[in-house]
């Protein structure tokens, strides 16, 4: 009788937990779709001390992913918003930590580098309302010049692998 033994509840609870954990956490490791890097993943596999890598840390420290997602789904909304290519698990293999985000208070940034330029991003970070009237994005003018430039480098690197990169990767 399970209601008489705390130990029995304990063990059964662990076993049931492990079943779900195995299916949803362990099994994906054996799916090559989840683990094989794509050309896009290589394009954002930054060297440790590069401006892009440093900019990514600025992105994290300021919590940009609180309001901006980095993934494009094959659904009508993302197609209509013209967010760029649909992303696959392999695009994120080198993302540590991942920056998926869960809320679009602001637009998706997965491929933001392919629709903006460095100058625009720099000015927009300093004073979003000046370039986008009515924007509810906070000002990031409190960042140091280095941090801002690194962040801009990171944002500008967020673009799909070029045809040349893809060809080199597929070789």
């Amino acid at each position: 009788m399970v209601e008489r033994s705390a130990l029995a509840i304990y063990i059964a609870a662990i076993v049931l937990f492990m079943m779900g954990a195995f299916a949803t956490i362990i099994l994906p490791f054996f799916d090559p779709d989840m683990t094989t890097p794509t050309a896009n993943a290589e394009a954002r596999n930054y060297a440790p001390d590069s401006p892009e890598a440093k900019g990514r840390l600025v992105y994290i420290a300021n919590g940009c992913n609180t309001c901006h997602t980095q993934y494009v789904r094959p659904v009508k909304a993302d197609v209509a918003m013209n967010l760029g290519p649909v992303t696959v698990p392999g695009d994120y293999v080198y993302d540590k930590p991942h920056l998926f985000g869960s809320n679009r208070t602001g637009p998706d940034l997965m491929w933001v580098g392919s629709r903006t330029n460095a100058q625009w991003n720099y000015q927009h970070l300093k004073n979003p309302q000046k370039l986008v009237p009515g924007s509810i994005m906070p000002k990031y003018d409190y960042l140091s010049e280095d941090d801002l430039n690194n962040l801009v480098s990171y944002l500008m690197s967020l673009k799909p692998a070029t045809n040349a990169q893809a060809a080199a990767f597929n070789k």
Binding site: V75, V79, M81, N82, V86, T116
Partner: peptide
């Protein structure tokens, strides 16, 4: 799984101002 990419903006062949507008989009 859902795949609605073919419905809009995804056509890479053929020329039309409509498709161009979709590409210009918000960028």
């Amino acid at each position: 799984g859902i795949d609605e990419t073919a419905n809009a903006g995804g056509n890479t062949a053929g020329v039309s101002a409509e498709a161009g507008k979709a590409l210009m989009g918000q960028s």
